[in-house]
């Protein structure tokens, strides 16, 4: 396909996506689900960079999510800043937090890195719940609606917020795509799959990890920023394990290093929870079990499962078609 045609097609699909909730009935529930899917997908893409590309597990991404939300809430309610300024604040704070955490954990690998990031998340929850400056256990209430006066936008409902959430999602998708084609993205994969080769090629694994950490934190924080406007309040529950498990499940469910993987993963989980819920506790069991089963039995995710089913079907078909296996299958 010609590049121009391809681009036109992508733009057309992206534009059509804006009307997806309207086509699906356009009810309040559909718009709420759509906004949450977009926000949580952006949240998951931040983690996706670390898990899928770098091959490590950061359990501190709920902290970046919460930093984004708290930054929006504090700056909007206490200083009366608008969404653009609060987004800037959220990104700066997330980068600073990621830099501190990244430097401290620079020399830690694999599970020690995860252990420290998990500890950060747990400690952040106790701090957020106890520190009066952040609203303590009550959290912060009364975040004004998302308003962009120059565009004449004032989002009182999820339907009005949807274009913003969708825009954020598209920007994130573009960023992920650009990241995977960038030098940094290539370096990450090499560090992940062949650290020795990476070192020989002049790539510093520690530096690469730190850079990706600094890039991924603001992505997740941006999701938190919009979530604060969507909910109009923030509290320590943003640091609950739910968001962490949701992120991890969406990243691994469909398949790693697929651009739309986390988005589809989040959508599947949210649709189940919003429209086919079995009650909060059973939903927890379902979400946790999906995570366990995918990692333990479907290393390639749903796409990997699909591929092996197709391969299995083809092999069956071939063995029925002719008793003599052809050269290609023998070679396989």
């Amino acid at each position: 396909m010609a590049p121009a045609l391809r681009l036109a097609l992508i733009v057309a699909i992206a534009a059509a996506g804006l009307f997806a909730p309207a086509l699906l009935g356009g009810t309040g529930a559909v718009y709420s689900a759509a906004v949450l899917i977009a926000i949580f997908a952006v949240m998951a893409y931040g983690l996706d960079m670390i898990v899928s590309d770098l091959g490590e597990v950061s359990l501190a991404h709920t902290v970046f999510f919460a930093i984004g939300a708290y930054a929006a809430a504090m700056l909007a309610t206490r200083l009366g800043l608008g969404p653009v300024a609060t987004l800037l604040g959220a990104i700066i704070l997330a980068v600073v937090a990621a830099a501190i955490l990244g430097v401290v954990t620079l020399r830690l690998k694999e599970f020690v890195f995860s252990l420290v990031t998990y500890a950060v998340a747990v400690v952040a929850m106790t701090v957020a719940a106890n520190w009066e400056f952040l609203g303590g256990s009550d959290g912060l209430r009364g975040i004004p609606p998302f308003t962009l006066a120059p565009l004449g936008l004032r989002a009182e409902t999820d339907a009005q917020l949807w274009p913003v959430a969708y825009g954020l999602l598209l920007v994130t998708l573009y960023l992920m795509h650009a990241f995977r084609r960038s030098r940094l993205g290539q370096a990450a994969v090499m560090v992940h799959l062949n650290p020795r080769l990476a070192t020989m090629s002049g790539i510093d694994p520690k530096r690469t990890r730190l850079q990706i950490f600094l890039l991924s934190a603001p992505v997740t924080a941006a999701a938190g920023w919009l979530y604060a406007y969507q909910r109009s309040f923030v509290s320590a529950d943003l640091l609950e394990t739910y968001f962490l498990i949701l992120m991890l499940t969406s990243v691994v469910l469909v398949g790693r290093r697929l651009l739309l993987g986390p988005l589809i993963g989040v959508a599947l989980v949210q649709i189940q929870e919003k429209f086919f819920s079995f009650g909060g506790y059973v939903d927890k069991i379902v979400l946790g079990s999906v995570l366990v089963v995918v990692l333990a039995f479907l290393p390639g995710g749903l796409v990997g499962l699909g591929r092996s089913l197709v391969a299995l079907g083809r092999r069956r078909g071939e063995s029925v078609a002719g008793s003599m296996p052809d050269v290609r299958t023998v070679k396989d």
Partner: peptide
């Protein structure tokens, strides 16, 4: 997660155990 253990795939083991914890949490509340 025996297969993951035999492969010493610590990254996946960490996430699986986290998932188990979440399942236990939901089941206990139920």
């Amino acid at each position: 997660m025996l297969q993951l253990t035999l492969k010493q795939d610590l990254v996946s083991i960490m996430i699986v155990t986290l998932g188990f914890g979440y399942v236990l949490n939901g089941a206990a509340a139920l």
